[in-house]
Amino acid sequence: MIQHLATGFAEAIVDTDGDKALQLVRQALAAGVSPEQVVFEVVVPCMDHLCGLAASDGGLSVAQHFLAAQISSDVVDAMLPRFRRAPQVAGRVVIGTAVGDFHALGKRIVSGCLSAHMIEVTDLGMNVPAERFVEQALARDAQVIAVSSMMVHTARGEHGCRGVRRILRERRLEQQLKVVVGGAPYRFDERLFEVVEADAWARSAIEAVPVVVRLVGEAGGP
């Protein structure tokens, strides 16, 4: 039953058929599958499977990433209140777009993918100053700051990731707060994350999950 559900759920997401994915989950719950099984034996393995597809030659399209993130986080949100025990938080992340950048889709997809993996995400919105990234990360006891940029000048600007790094360095927070970046410019220049002094980058939203999990660990865990 679970295997059948997991396969069907993943196929529906690859086919961008959100209705079918949700229908499968409803059928499984009606047949006695537990909310915990839906999350940990269907949604999370599906995201891991998609991570493999994303890293493959053809990759996954933005539309597939978007639906995977939206459906997975919706399912997880619906299942969590029905868990017998509250699940352990796997990490905390604050995310936003760099100053001057008004492209929200990327961070929205990343947030959905992270949430499905029990990583608590605080979305700071668009056009976020470096100081706010750091303040909010500290206020929310986060381990990772995620800075999204869709444009070259916002990725490289002094008030984006570089600004975050400068503040972390000045305040000696580099051990406890790690910085990950993502967005179109990083896909066109795989060394750019080093230029802007990030700790890591992710090619796609789904591939961001293992990167963030690693950084959470490097920052000392949740």
Binding site: A63, F66, L105
Partner: peptide
């Protein structure tokens, strides 16, 4: 409308 609004409208 921005990609974050258009993509959901287009897909679903």
């Amino acid at each position: 409308m921005g990609m974050e609004r258009w993509l959901p409208l287009l897909l679903t």
